[in-house]
Design a protein around this nucleic acid. Structure first.
Length: 825
RNA sequence: GGGCGCUUAGCUCAGUUGGUAGAGCAUCGCCUUCACACGGCGGUGGUCGCAGGUUCGAGUCCUGCAGCGCCCACCA
């Protein structure tokens, strides 16, 4: 039913770039929420006659999977090991992790994620997602690897991807580079330490620092060029405490006279500002922190580590070597106190520190060789792409622009990890056994995907791996976003199925949540811009988050996550979808079981109302009665409004409009026709025809939202699936409803019935007691309709119009717009 | 520090181009009536965050402020 028609011409295609959920986690209510939004749009477009390309992907690539596999099987990846085809993981994880090769590790990742993917698919089917499951992809799958590597090689060829040895943001626990997009600030306790530096002619100047442990890595001091306090020091050198290193005092506009003493240490590297100063002031490197976060061994007095008293520097430094940054800080404070170079006590502060979003310790900056994709010189072009993209809601564009304007470097795409797409690159090994990183060996496009740790470059043999004169593979894998940014290419068959690609790309819709605008949305726009010089899609619909009743984002760590399957089983999929669809585009929505109960009630009401309408059958004929025509005139407007809202991706408004009409249809119209249907005349035939037409239309209006109950009813009296039925149009209504009519007779009569019900309730008059209208105030709008109000219709409420009923015009705007009959027993 | 959004009934939220404040839930009451008790109908309930301004008229437009949330930002 949901199979994408690959023969459909491009104008009829509607292609959705589905977010592939991370399979190593579990799906939560937020997923159910946002994936429902997408499904409503997919179902609507399908009923409009579009060939909907709606795949599902699994994001099984990356760190979360790695961590899970390590724990689940008790293994650890050692890329230096050869593949062992006979390896079988132990039944229960061993006490000490078993080292296995990268291909073995990847096999285990694939095995574990395959199980998850079965569970995920079951949930999505239960929820009623109208996905074409034959198009499912995985981000670690063979084709995703081919696309990632091919796109990388194309960028390399164009000079848009490059490799560089440079200071890079580094997570010391995962021991990998990370990108700007993966950072988050966390508020941390810290302390200002006032340190003294010896001035050349005697005396001291003081510097405030939160990272005294980096004094051995200090390469200069810096103050603002206009700062009067330091004018005389610019161009001179001062001496670092404990280590006795001469460092220059420099001027740079980035130095903030307001912070600390107005003069700062430049260390290699304490933060990203250090990197800027270091680069722009052309300073030397004196790095102390290693990839694992520990202070590295240093021989003082050696080139680059000159000190006035090398022995003393060594004695001090040896107490730091091997320690982590935090422990080194504690130790150096003691040393500074002993030497008298620490003035006063450290002054506690809280400040923002950069973390890898998945990391536990603050990021360090470590110099390493990494791959980058150019972004900085595309910023203007990317802003223009963001302008051209249709955002729903519109204001989310600001997030994108905010991010693009805040970029401070090219995108680092290499990670020193294992479960990811490898870089399709080998390097020559020199005769002395060292790697020549400039002598790259690349595969042909036809060979992709390749794993350079097991595959061999053209013209070499496996025996030459790592040998002098031979080759080595690039050890790194790509950032997970380097693959995810290519989902439109993966889905649309880029460089694999040109016919499919031409029909589906650029795609139509990218649905996603707002927290990954800077990562997934941004990087996808970038890759499409660089590769095809287009936007990847015309529209993006941004969903909000599901908040718990305390208005906090629902998350596992807070222990407030509800299992989606249990939710679906308790309330029913239609009910949960109803709740989800009420959360409009971009709006964070409270988790509210009450709304699900309302959705369930709506579904049951649909069943019952359908049962009533379908009790009576009649030949399909024109609708002639004024009441029926008036009701259909209202429905005509509803069809137009619901369609317009869905065209604009505003599923929440669409549902509201359809629902409001349906309740009125049940309360008022169904009551109005109850007695008429029992007659055996043209009025009855008209009522039955109109009821069935209205039911058919309303079932189709609700089908994208409540796919199960609508299909259930549809299947009892229609051929085929409601989900393949044509979307209702105003033309369809006009074709059956002869003559022109408006909705006023319907609203007037509904108003009278509602007023009678209110009066009965207020005066406690039971339904079985007949009542008569004695007075009626009419608004000018409804004046002309009064003469059409029929007593046989009002009889459904057991109300009659007395001979002496007084009908009054509403006197200007003085009277209430409501019709206020006075009811007598 | 910059950006974006939100603030309307006890709760969750609608409120199109300015024109008498809306829905559902909760609460209270009524009703077995031939689709529906897994129900129906009705009632109560609001200085629209605050202060100015524009206007005949402001929940809506403008300015400022406050609170909340999110995104971003130079760890001295």
């Amino acid at each position: 039913m949901y199979r994408f028609d690959r023969q459909a011409p491009r104008e009829q295609v509607f292609a959705i770039d589905t977010p592939p959920p991370t399979v190593s986690g579990s799906l939560h209510v937020g997923h159910v929420f946002s994936y429902t939004h997408t499904d409503v749009i997919a179902r609507y477009q399908r009923m409009r006659g579009r060939a909907v390309c709606y795949p599902m992907g699994w994001d099984d690539n990356g760190l979360p999977t790695e961590r899970r596999v390590q724990n689940y099987y008790g293994v650890r990846c050692d890329p230096s090991l050869p593949y062992d085809p006979t390896f079988v993981p132990p039944e229960t994880p061993a006490k000490h992790p078993i080292n296995i090769s990268r291909p073995n590790f990847v096999e285990l990742c694939a095995r574990l994620t395959a199980d998850d993917e079965v569970v995920f698919e079951r949930l999505w089917r239960h929820l009623g997602l109208s996905v074409d499951w034959s198009m499912t992809y995985a981000t670690i799958g063979r084709d995703a690897q081919r696309v990632s590597q091919l796109a990388f090689l194309r960028l390399l060829d164009k000079g848009r991807a490059y490799q560089l040895e440079a200071p890079t943001l580094w997570d010391v626990d995962f021991r990998t580079a990370v990108a700007q997009a993966e950072l988050e600030d966390r508020e941390m306790p810290g302390a200002y330490h006032t340190i003294r530096f010896a001035k050349p002619g005697g005396g001291f100047l003081t510097v405030d620092t939160t990272r005294p442990e980096l004094i051995p890595a200090c390469v200069a001091l810096v103050a603002h060029p206009d700062d009067p306090r330091y004018q005389s020091l610019f161009g001179t050198t001062v001496t670092t405490p404990l280590f006795g290193v001469s460092v220059p005092v420099r001027a740079h506009a980035l130095a903030d006279p307001e912070k600390g003493t107005g003069i700062a240490m430049i260390c290699t590297f304490g933060d990203v500002t250090d990197v800027v100063w270091w680069r722009e002031l052309a300073l030397p490197v004196r790095a102390v922190i290693q990839a694992n976060g520990a202070f590295k061994p240093v021989t003082w007095g050696a080139p680059g580590w000159e000190a006035t008293d090398a022995a003393q520097a060594q004695a001090h430094y040896d107490q730091l070597a091997g320690l982590s940054a935090v422990k080194a800080r504690t130790r150096i404070v003691e040393l500074l106190r002993e030497s008298g170079d620490l003035l006063g006590d450290p002054r506690p502060i809280t400040h923002h520190v950069k973390f890898f979003e998945k990391g536990d310790r603050p990021l360090e900056i470590v110099t390493s060789r990494q791959w980058f994709i150019q972004t900085m010189n595309e910023r203007q072009a990317l802003l223009a792409r963001g302008q051209a993209l249709q955002w729903h809601p519109e204001y989310m564009r600001a997030r994108f622009e905010n991010w693009v304007n805040g970029l401070n470097g090219d995108w680092c795409i290499s990670r020193q990890r294992f479960f990811g797409v490898p870089f399709p690159v080998w390097y020559r090994v020199r005769e002395d056994g060292t790697t020549d990183v400039d002598a790259r060996l690349l595969p042909t496009e036809a060979q992709l995907p390749v794993d350079p740790s097991t595959d061999v470059p053209e013209g070499f043999t496996q025996a030459q791996r790592g040998e002098p004169g031979g080759f080595v593979g690039d050890p790194d894998v790509m950032d997970t976003w380097a693959t995810s940014s290519l989902t439109p290419f993966i889905v649309c068959g880029w460089e694999r199925d040109p016919d499919l690609f031409a029909r589906t790309y650029p795609m139509h819709l990218r649905p996603q949540a707002h927290d990954i605008i800077r990562t997934w949305l941004f990087s996808t726009v970038l890759r499409a811009h660089l590769e095809t010089d287009t936007l990847p899609w015309t529209d993006t619909a941004i969903s909000g988050w599901v908040l718990d009743p305390d208005r906090k984002k629902m998350s596992k760590s807070k222990g407030n996550v509800v299992t989606p399957m249990a939710l679906l089983e308790e309330h029913g999929s239609d009910a949960v979808r109803y709740w989800a669809a009420k959360g409009g585009p971009g709006v964070d929505t409270a988790f509210e079981p009450g709304q699900m109960k309302v959705g369930r009630r709506l579904a049951i009401k649909l069943l019952n109302a359908s049962k009533f309408v379908l009790m009576k059958d009649a030949p399909v004929g024109p609708v002639t009665d004024a009441y029926d025509l008036s009701m259909l005139a209202r429905l005509r407007g509803v069809v137009a409004d619901v369609s317009r809202a869905l065209d604009e991706f505003d599923y929440a408004s669409a549902l509201r409009v359809a629902e409001a009409f349906f309740w009125s249809f049940c309360d008022d119209y169904v009551e109005m026709v109850k007695r008429r249907r029992l007659a055996d005349d043209g009025s009855a035939a008209s009522a039955i025809a109109a009821s069935r037409l209205a039911l058919s239309i309303q079932l189709r209006l609700f089908a994208p939202f409540l796919p199960f109950v609508t299909e259930e009813v549809w299947s009892t009296w229609q051929v085929g699936s409601v989900h393949r039925a044509p979307w209702p149009t105003v033309d369809e209504v006009d074709a059956r409803a002869s003559g022109s009519a408006d909705g006023r007779l319907y609203t007037l009569t509904a108003g009278i019935l509602a007023a009678v019900r209110a009066a009965r309730s207020l005066k406690k008059i039971p339904f079985s007691t007949p009542v008569a209208l004695t007075a009626l105030h009419l608004t000018p709008e409804h004046r002309a309709q009064w003469s059409q109000v029929r007593t046989d219709v009002l009889a459904c409420c057991n109300v009659t119009v007395a001979d002496d009923t007084v009908v009054r015009d509403a006197d200007g705007t003085e009277l209430s717009a409501d019709v206020e009959p006075v009811v007598g027993g």
